[in-house]
Simulated scan of single mutants.
Amino acid sequence: MKKTMIALGLMSLMTGLTGCNENQEAVSATIHQQHVKAVGAFTEAARELESTVETLCQANTDDHLAASRAAWQVLMQDWMVLQGREKGSEAALALTWQIQFWPDKKDITGRKMAQLLAQSTHWNAALLADQSVAVQGAGAMEWLLYAHPEQLKQPQGCEVATAISQRLTQSGEALIEAWKANPWQAMTPQLALSEYVGALTNQLDFAMKKLTLPMGKPGHPRPYQAESWRSQTSMRNLKANVQAMQSLYLAEGKGLDALLRAQGEIALADRIAGEFDSLIAGWPQTASMGALLKTRDGYRDLIRIYNSLEYIRFALHDEVSPALGIVVGFNATDGD
Rank of each mutant, 00 (worst) to 15 (best):
A26E: 13
P221E: 02
R261H: 03
L279T: 14
V53S: 07
L309A: 01
K210T: 08
A207K: 00
R236V: 07
S51N: 14
F330E: 15
N307D: 13
M208K: 09
D336S: 09
S171V: 00
H32L: 07
M5Q: 12
Y311E: 12
M141S: 02
T96H: 13
Q243A: 08
A126Y: 04
N21D: 15
E275A: 04
Y146K: 02
A251L: 15
E86G: 01
L248Q: 06
P189E: 06
P183E: 13
V328T: 12
L268V: 10
P183Y: 07
A66F: 07
V27Q: 15
A94I: 03
R111A: 09
M208H: 02
I266C: 00
K2H: 09
L56M: 08
Q190H: 10
K112G: 01
G157Q: 07
Q232T: 10
Q58A: 06
L211Y: 11
T188N: 11
V36L: 15
I6S: 00
M76C: 08
S89M: 11
S165C: 04
E44N: 12
Q232S: 09
G88S: 07
A94Y: 00
K37I: 01
E275W: 00
Q100D: 11
M1N: 13
G264Y: 05
N202Y: 06
D334C: 02
S321N: 15
A240E: 13
Q24A: 05
L309D: 05
D62Y: 00
W184T: 03
L13T: 11
K87V: 15
V242D: 03
M5Y: 07
F206S: 11
T18E: 10
I6K: 04
R222N: 14
R261M: 06
G282K: 07
F314P: 11
H220S: 12
V135P: 15
G253Q: 05
Q33F: 01
H35C: 03
Q73G: 08
R47G: 15
L65R: 10
L128I: 10
Q58W: 01
S194L: 06
K209V: 11
E50Y: 01
W97V: 12
L193N: 03
S234Y: 05
R47K: 12
T4C: 02
Q58T: 08
K87G: 14
K37V: 06
G255R: 03
A269S: 14
Q156L: 10
G9A: 02
D205S: 14
G298I: 09
A251T: 09
A226P: 15
S12H: 03
G216L: 11
G198E: 15
L316D: 13
A140Y: 01
K180V: 14
Q73L: 15
N331D: 13
G290V: 05
K217A: 12
R296K: 14
A67G: 08
